[in-house]
């Protein structure tokens, strides 16, 4: 019995050989090395100098770092629910077998493959408070739009909207794959019981795709806490530091300010934060994720 179990364990590890090699060869070394660097004053160019916990101490005392932490969580708080909600909604809409649905799928997916650099300029123009399209449309409904990207209060919401626009197609496709796998009999049975469309979505679709929702939430969380590209190309952290995120600070310190050591210490704060949030999500999944 024991021998059989042992044999089966060896067998299952066979499937994991590539993954384990990959972990050791391409990840472990890099991650450990960067962790070690967080205790050094290191600019890549000149030899590293051991400074113990100084980098961590500096980070904790830096006002800018805490502004960035605050901004990053603000982004996550807006981005995650909007993305999950919209991705599932779009997936349900384009999962219908109606004419022209393929075109809409493609349109919703287009932003995902569009380059962020090009997108950033388009949105800078769309969000211009005086001449941009967004406030023009709002004006038609008698709403005076805010200054968006040039306002410290509204820049982050604008970044969130652009990010959702840019990535929601990605999550929509994941949901779509999951929806395709729901057996039509489930809906047929519900229809016979007289359940309307909303009831079907609530009682069949949402529970059945909950393992996918869990995946999407985890992914959105990680990508939102690591947000970089959108602010790098769209706002450069401005105006008035209102969109400086932790990962933007890490990038600047590492490659623009020649402070690789300090950048890595920030990265490990971020790593810890992501880990804690993810752990909570894993612990919480038993309450709402429904596995077959």
């Amino acid at each position: 019995m024991l021998r059989k179990r042992f044999k089966s364990t060896i067998g299952i590890y066979g499937y994991l050989v590539p993954t384990i090699i990959g972990l050791i060869l391409f990840n472990a070394g890099a991650i450990v090395a960067s962790f070690v660097l967080s205790f050094y004053k290191y600019d890549v160019i000149t030899p590293a100098k051991w400074i113990g916990l100084d980098n961590y101490r500096w980070v904790l005392n830096s006002k800018l770092f805490w502004t960035a932490v605050n901004n990053t969580f603000k982004f996550a708080a807006g981005y995650i629910p909007l993305s999950v909600f919209l991705a599932l909604g779009l997936a349900i809409l384009v999962n219908e077998r109606i004419k022209g649905v393929g075109l809409f799928r493609t349109i919703f997916y287009l932003p995902v493959v569009t380059s962020m650099v090009g997108v950033s300029m388009v949105f800078a123009w769309l969000f211009n408070p005086y001449y941009g399209l967004v406030n023009y449309v709002l004006g038609l409904f008698k709403i005076t739009g805010p200054a968006w990207l040039s306002s410290p209060q509204w820049a982050m919401p604008a970044v969130i909207l652009v990010s959702v626009w840019k990535t929601v197609g990605y999550y929509m496709v994941i949901y779509l794959a999951a929806l395709q796998n729901i057996s039509p009999e489930l809906y047929e049975a519900a229809q016979i019981d007289g359940a309307n469309r909303w009831a079907q979505i609530r009682h069949i679709t949402i529970p059945v795709v909950s393992s996918t929702t869990f995946f999407v939430v985890i992914m959105c969380t990680m990508s939102s806490l690591k947000i970089f590209e959108q602010v790098y190309v769209m706002t450069q952290g401005g105006p008035a530091n209102s969109t400086v995120t932790v990962n933007l600070l890490i990038y600047r310190n590492a490659f623009e300010y020649l402070r690789m050591g300090r950048a890595t210490s920030m990265a490990y704060f971020l790593f810890a934060a992501i880990m804690i949030v993810t752990c909570i999500q894993f612990l919480g999944q038993r309450w709402w994720v429904h596995y077959e």
Partner: peptide, 21 residues
């Protein structure tokens, strides 16, 4: 020294004045 870093810090802090806020 550290021009990139301090000039970015300066522009960020002066920005509210130019935004009229």
């Amino acid at each position: 020294p550290n021009w990139g870093e301090w000039s970015a810090a300066r522009e960020a802090q002066l920005e509210p004045a130019f935004l009229g806020q």
